[in-house]
Amino acid sequence: MGGEVRIVVADDHRMVRKAWQLLLSAKQQYTVVGQAANGAEVLQLLQTMRADLVLMDLDMPVMNGFDATEQIKKRYPWIKVIGLTQQKESGYIKKLFALGASAYLTKNASDEELFEALEHVLDEKRYLSREVSDVLSKSLLTPPSEGSADQVFMGLSAREIEIVKLIASGHTTLQISNTLHLSIKTIESHRRNIFKKLQVKNVAQMIGKVKDRIV
């Protein structure tokens, strides 16, 4: 893609968004045209502005990066999405690529790797973070077998599965927040999403639905 590349950055931490904007501004061809604190805000921005690419944090409240990516690719299939997260599980990566994202980067990636990913994506190629590519490349090429964890928890992200297991083992919201180094607000948002996806109304129903599937 030649010329200016218009980018929206999405992360629930304002300082992280500012850091991305500062980094991208160092390259003349990249212009940050909008910032969002969650997936719903990304979709609102895209209704009123033209963008070529979204740098998308996957763990956000209100609407996470997976759901936002799915909606973006349905409404604006030409927009590229690069997912950024701390997670390295194969289920996370497979799900994001299945939704139409073009790249998966861990937040430990260097500045140079981010720009390398941008170049690949804009050249119509997919990019997988170096930190996980060696470990997961084989897994990504192998479809999940029937009854595997990926299929059992098909509707849940890797982070949501982690939270389900912690809730089922008796952890409180505060304890989960401390364990995962996420805000209480984020944990509560994940909890609401879990209940919605599993179609349950409380913890007891949730545990009853997954008790035979949690390893």
Rank of each mutant, 00 (worst) to 15 (best):
A158N: 01
A158P: 02
A158T: 01
A158E: 05
A158F: 00
A158H: 04
R159Y: 10
E160Y: 02
E160W: 01
E160G: 03
I161Y: 01
I161P: 03
E162I: 00
E162G: 09
E162Y: 05
E162V: 00
E162T: 03
I163W: 00
I163M: 01
I163T: 00
I163N: 00
V164N: 00
V164I: 06
V164K: 01
K165M: 10
L166C: 02
I167S: 01
I167V: 04
A168L: 05
S169Q: 14
S169P: 02
G170V: 00
G170K: 08
T172D: 07
T172K: 04
T173R: 08
T173P: 05
T173H: 08
L174W: 05
Q175A: 12
Q175P: 03
Q175K: 08
I176S: 03
I176G: 03
S177I: 08
N178W: 06
N178T: 11
N178P: 07
N178H: 07
T179Y: 13
L180Q: 07
L180T: 12
L180A: 04
H181C: 10
L182K: 12
L182H: 03
L182E: 07
L182G: 00
S183W: 03
S183N: 05
S183C: 06
S183P: 03
I184F: 09
I184G: 03
I184Y: 07
I184P: 01
I184W: 04
I184E: 11
K185L: 13
K185P: 02
K185C: 11
K185V: 15
T186F: 10
T186L: 15
T186M: 15
T186K: 09
I187R: 02
I187T: 01
E188V: 06
E188N: 12
S189R: 00
S189A: 15
S189T: 11
S189P: 10
H190G: 02
H190I: 03
H190M: 14
R191S: 14
R192Q: 15
R192F: 09
I194G: 00
I194F: 13
F195P: 02
F195Q: 09
F195E: 11
K196Y: 12
K196F: 10
K196V: 10
K196N: 13
K197N: 11
K197W: 07
L198V: 06
L198K: 10
Q199W: 04
Q199Y: 07
Q199S: 15
V200M: 09
V200D: 09
K201I: 06
K201L: 08
K201D: 12
K201W: 08
K201S: 14
N202M: 11
V203G: 08
A204H: 10
A204E: 14
A204Q: 11
A204V: 09
Q205G: 12
Q205F: 08
Q205S: 13
Q205A: 15
Q205R: 12
I207C: 01
G208I: 05
K209R: 11
K209V: 09
V210M: 07
V210P: 02
V210K: 02
D212I: 07
D212M: 10
D212S: 08
R213F: 14
R213S: 15
I214G: 01
I214K: 03
I214Q: 05
V215D: 13
V215T: 12
V215P: 14
V215C: 04
